[in-house]
Design a protein around this nucleic acid. Sequence first.
DNA 1: CAGTGAGCGAGCTTCCGCTTGACTT
Length: 651
Amino acid sequence: MQNLVIVESPTKAKTLSKFLGSKYQVEASMGHVRDLPKGDIGVDVEHDFAPKYIIPRDKSKKANELKKLAKEAKTLWLATDPDREGEAIAWHLKELFNRKDAYKRVVFHEITEDAINEAFAHPRDLDKQLIDAQQARRVLDRLVGYKLSPLLWKKVKSGLSAGRVQSVALRLIVEREREIEAFKPQEYWSLEAELEKKGEKAANFVAALVEQNGKKLAIKNQGEADKHVKALEKADYQVAKITQKEVKKYAAPPFTTSTMQQAAANRLGFSAKRTMQLAQVLYEHGYITYMRTDSLNLSAQAIAAVRDFIGQHIGKNYLPKEAKVYKTKSKVAQEAHEAIRPTNVKLAPDELKNIEGMTRDHVRLYDMIWKRMVASQMAEAVFDQKTVDIKADSYTLRVTGSTLKFDGWMIVYGKIQDEEGEEGEKILPELTEGEILKLLKLLPTQHFTEPPARFNEASLIKKLEELSIGRPSTYAPILSTIQERFYVEKVEKRFSPTPLGIAVTDFLVKYFPNIVDYDFTASMEDALDNIANGEDRWQPIIGTFYRPFEKKIKEVDEEAGRVAIKSEEVDKKCPKCGKNLQIKYGKFGKFLACTGFPDCKYTESIEEKVDVPCPDCGGEIVIRKTRRGRPFYGCKNWPNCKYASWTKPKK
DNA sequence: CAGTGAGCGAGCTTCCGCTTGACTT
């Protein structure tokens, strides 16, 4: 074989192979092939932070295969992703192969014939500065993670972890909980008037009190509300001003990983993990583009195809004159791929149902991706919005109604109501300025301000992305990590911190405020940019961070006491010694242990009862977990009764 | 997802980011 081409994913390899023909053998590296060792820190902090790279056990087979192929090939084309990690993967491959001068680095942002021909006609050298930026990122994360975690083992509890990303995600959850705890509801009142257009009985509507003497009115309590009600009862109502305007609603851009995960959570109730598993299958079958991306770009071909589709199947009036161009606001976006979109817009979601291997949920996710992409290239929706100001003595009441004039993209993607909680449209009777209205009823209502909501998967991912923390490939794993460590628990699909999570956050905020600062990652990215553009070398940048950090670790190690975790006592006595039991977190999850430990070593498991009898013996069924943490339904009489099931047994 | 369980409180744990089959019952 003359030419060996290496990309990251096997699906991409397959597609690329079709374009390149038989003179090129295309192989996938499956991501990184070399990494720092898992067993030790792997960075020589005394010698310019030299990283020790090894081939991880699970990559050795792949690495050997590639090595063998590389030996035989004449030219090696390193065609990994055009971003920081991709450049590093290319370099690691080169180091792995250890052959001189046979390399060509090629980059392309889309897999089209033109883009590929262009790329292969203009190979370049590896970008050492970009590689160094990646090494700095890798080494920094390793130093932070592998220095902080052992400190937590010593000061808090063994087995814990801390890192640039997970510790900030945890902090967000802990601080939100504190906001909620500290929240004091404020009373306020709204006052609405039900009014009638004179002479037309059916034409009544509700207007809200907004101003008094031209100033915004806030009603704090019942006394104030009563006062306004009294005054308004005697007032005359007259239409003062009608303003009418056209309001356009713009379609959302096509999906990135983060917005797809958010929409799938809000619209379909999927976890981020589930969404990614489904998307992976759609991608491997060639139905969608790559699902780990932060880009909003659409290829020229995709745009042409979708415009064609809109014009032909939806309607000419739904097709804007020009294609829409979306740009990401994120500074850290690497834009190595396209936005997530169907690869063939002509494949309607309904048709996917009939394809072997596609489950209902695959279809539902594809449907959402397809609609979002098509809508993103459609005309705006247009509403007629009418605002009516009504005078009643010194008061102003207002009512806003809107009617849909043109549905535009909304005919495809539907309202984003579920995602944004927007109000529906309100239709107003025909009114004219100066018209007198009749008061039917005054409607004072008491309200209280509400605390912020706990984060769910969607809102946490959104927040992390806003802070530039984490990457498309890591959003879902971050959520798993903080749960696996028992830092947080999901209660009704929302994250709530455990006493352990609170203790860890407080420890980190107290001693390492810079690392768990919400801006830490953003400033790291700035520093990495300077390495990538050649202004700085990576080792001094890491040194500037590491020297004070190392000192602080040592100080805290010597000075800080062991952290007490708030115990969670339950209303149950120890059958051995009579003391209270408390919740503990072990390798296999939560369990109850005696507060008298170490004098009393009593433990028992926590069982969630299910209200169905055991189909085998009629005993109680409880939810338990496997060693790996997967819940199942088992009989309480185990081991006498061996009944077990993944799904809830029927009554 | 094929994978189902009595222990955690003792001897090794841990990072982030890139990517899919791992390997055993």
